[in-house]
């Protein structure tokens, strides 16, 4: 059983929803991301999603675009992100780590070389934003061969046929993008998200994570009540950005949002 599947099983037994923070690796510096990852776990994160910097982040809004630019200014490459995961694993062998990024860095490294290295350092899942199932067959096979979960996005525009096609390939969990748009967009419609999550549940037994547009404890609790995992990205990255000139306090202050979300989500879910 993969670390991700195990994580969701334990949470489901405890009737809790997973909380998945996203941070861009190397923003503002790799030496900050490592303690930040550990602090996020302490604050209540169940899975860590690490953004792999890319020069052309087409699906990201301005907040995460700037995070990519800050990381790239420090020459943070896919190789260095894998090194970061290795360093994280020296002190945490339980928390699943998922890489999220774009295909080209993996293409250039080569699917085999990448999956060997990723498995070797303890990466548990990979989300490749610009790799839909139609193009993913070889990639999925390569990942699964090394027991890495290929995680796919579902969107408001995905119809039943696409949801079924994607869930047949996906492992670990599926990630429902809650709105049409780029990361960091504001308008979250909880009711329409709930309807779509219900539709996805009819098709798959995989845990369903929801991301895009979750900014605070309240929205995390509302989404947490209808899904298996809440992903929070831009709201965290925005806090990193605000503190980019005071690195030393980032691992202390940024996880406060995760603590708040955790409390609100657990409260909302507690059996009455």
């Amino acid at each position: 059983m993969s670390r991700i599947t195990g994580c969701f099983q334990r949470l489901q037994e405890a009737r809790r929803c997973a909380l998945i923070p996203f941070v861009t690796a190397g923003d503002p510096d790799l030496s900050v991301t490592l303690p930040l990852m550990h602090a996020l776990v302490t604050a209540g994160a169940n899975i860590i999603e690490l953004g792999v910097p890319f020069s052309d982040p087409m699906a990201d809004g301005p907040v995460i675009q700037r995070a990519n630019e800050r990381a790239l200014a420090r020459q943070v490459s896919l190789r260095k992100v894998l090194g970061l995961v290795k360093a994280f694993r020296a002190h945490d062998v339980e928390t699943p780590v998922v890489l999220m990024g774009y295909l080209n860095p993996i293409e250039v490294m080569g699917y085999d070389a990448f999956s060997d290295m990723a498995a070797g350092v303890g990466v548990d899942g990979v989300i490749t934003v610009d790799l839909p199932p139609e193009e993913a067959e070889i990639f999925v096979r390569t990942m699964q061969h090394r027991s890495i979960d290929p995680i796919f996005l579902l969107a408001p525009t995905s119809n039943r046929a696409r949801i079924a096609q994607i869930c047949a390939l996906a492992r670990g969990f599926v990630y429902y993008v809650s709105l049409k748009g780029v990361t960091g967009a504001a308008h979250l419609d909880v009711e329409s998200v709930a309807n779509k999550v219900y539709e996805i549940r009819e098709i798959t037994d995989l845990p369903i994570g929801v991301g895009f547009g979750i900014r605070d404890a309240e929205s995390a609790a509302r989404i947490g009540a209808i899904s298996d995992a809440v992903v929070v990205g831009s709201a965290l990255v925005q806090r990193v950005e605000a503190l980019r000139h005071r690195w030393e306090v980032i691992p202390e202050e940024v996880p406060l949002l995760i603590s708040e979300m955790r409390r609100a989500m657990d409260h909302g879910r507690s059996p009455r």
Partner: peptide
């Protein structure tokens, strides 16, 4: 039919754009 010229071409976009 999937837009491939040999190994080139294809549809490498975010899921939201696939149905459009």
């Amino acid at each position: 039919e999937h837009g491939h010229f040999g190994v080139y071409g294809g549809q490498f976009v975010a899921e939201t754009l696939m149905r459009p």
